[in-house]
Design a protein around this nucleic acid. Structure first.
Lengths: 249, 249
DNA sequence: AAATATCTTGCAAAAAAATGCAAAAAAAAG
DNA sequence: CTTTTTTTTGCATTTTTTTGCAAGATATTT
């Protein structure tokens, strides 16, 4: 059996079962554990799945449900994205950028929610295919293959003509003193512009990202209006944010 | 058994099984392993399959995620999209809109081709992920969920800033008297603008579309520079097109 | 904290690929 | 019809890729 065939079978099983176990697979396909392990690493490099301890789960872009049942912190993401739904009301115009959190939020939109969503993320646009009442507008620009988003001047220029009700900002780091930070420079510039195009700005933070600082600063905390977190709004570690006028959700 | 017959059988088996094994094939066809291996190399050069260690797989074997519903089922389309490759040279900027034909052409780009591709089609952008030397620029605008393209004023405006070497135009109908026609009005308007942004315009027509007329007119024949067809350039049914100065490929 | 399961790393054997070469077959030329 | 040229084929050798194993490291569970 050739490697590619094996890898295809792995992906197929993954799509069926939502998760796979390496030991089980090696028995099923009659090859060593190591071969399967190496296949899974290759498939992860291609972005077709996500490797976890003991097995692999579907890449988050494909399906949300797939990540359940494995003990990573997806429970928190699920909780967070459910909570985030409170931000939206019918007939609003929402700006959403790339990132897995925004992807999951969009995926969980109620089917009867009527929104206009403006985004620079291709996976986001594609997942909104499933939501007939949502109108999607895509920002044009240079396409970033890994992040699957558009960037650059053309996206910036297009933003100048827009004024949205809410911007749901993806980010890497959040710190009470430094503000919102990011790992990628080009993206950070675009996000600054996005924030200025919006009446309100919301961020959705898993606990891991709070009190983390990354290289490029996007904005100060006073530009943020809502913070969605899985912590209780009264949690003392959120004092710094509440004091700056951010509404905790 | 002559080489051509063998290669035909290889392709047939590949279409059946999606994958082939070289050793197995050499036994099946009663020729040496080396002959099969050389056949497969030739077929890969022609872009008809992808060679992998131990065998070969169909071109879209593991990228099926992006090619869903786009599989080439038609020998003529395959022939046509291969022929269309002649249109491209390194370092050109190409404008390509949506549609399956353009998708297949992009899919078959040689991996070492250096292009800038501007498109309003999301599947096209995604398939170009696999081509590291191609820079992709996406046109923004209202996202059409069924066609998976962007449309509207924002796309139009973005085009005003662009001037490309070649526009590869998708279409529904082509007629010597009426010109190029389309089924969708909004798209037809955008295509008109696209044609004006390009130095040259090419269309790629399966025989079925020739002498067909649809509802909305895109442009006259004199705006078209190249016509890619599976017919021989000398075919008399193409006289009308050649007479209008269109180069038949 | 111990026990169990999984992961990583380096290595050697096996499988397959690439390369160069010469014989055979086919095509072209005389 | 024969000779020359070209193409195709199979084989032997070298190189690369893949594979499975074992030992030590890391993570997870009890």
């Amino acid at each position: 059996m050739i490697k590619e065939e094996r890898q295809r079978l792995i992906i197929e099983k993954l799509n069926r079962d939502q998760k796979i176990n390496l030991v089980e697979l090696s028995q099923l396909l009659h090859v060593s554990y190591d071969s399967i392990r190496r296949d899974v690493i290759e498939l992860e490099d291609k972005g077709l799945l996500k490797k976890v301890h003991g097995g692999a789960v579907a890449n988050s872009y494909l399906s949300f449900k797939t990540t359940q049942g494995f003990g990573i912190d997806n429970q928190e993401v699920l909780h967070l994205t459910r909570k985030a739904q409170k931000l939206f009301e019918n007939h609003q115009t929402i700006l959403m950028d790339g990132g897995t959190t925004n992807f999951h939020i969009a995926e969980q939109f109620p089917k009867n929610l009527e929104l206009t969503v403006i985004t620079n993320s291709l996976p986001l646009a594609i997942v909104l295919n499933e939501h007939p009442k949502i109108e999607t507008i895509l920002l044009g620009g240079t396409y970033h293959k890994r992040y699957q988003i558009t960037l650059g001047n053309q996206a910036m220029r297009q933003l100048e003509h827009l004024r949205v009700d809410l911007y749901l900002m993806g980010f890497n780091g959040l710190d009470p003193n430094v503000g919102v930070t990011l790992r990628n420079y080009e993206e950070s510039v675009l996000k600054q512009k996005m924030a200025k195009s919006a009446k309100k700005v919301a961020i959705c933070a898993i606990t891991e990202k709070i009190h983390t600082i990354e290289t490029y600063k996007v904005c100060d905390l006073h530009e943020i209006d809502f913070l969605v977190t899985s912590l209780k709004p009264s949690d003392p570690s959120l004092n710094d944010f509440r004091n700056k006028g951010i509404e905790i959700i």
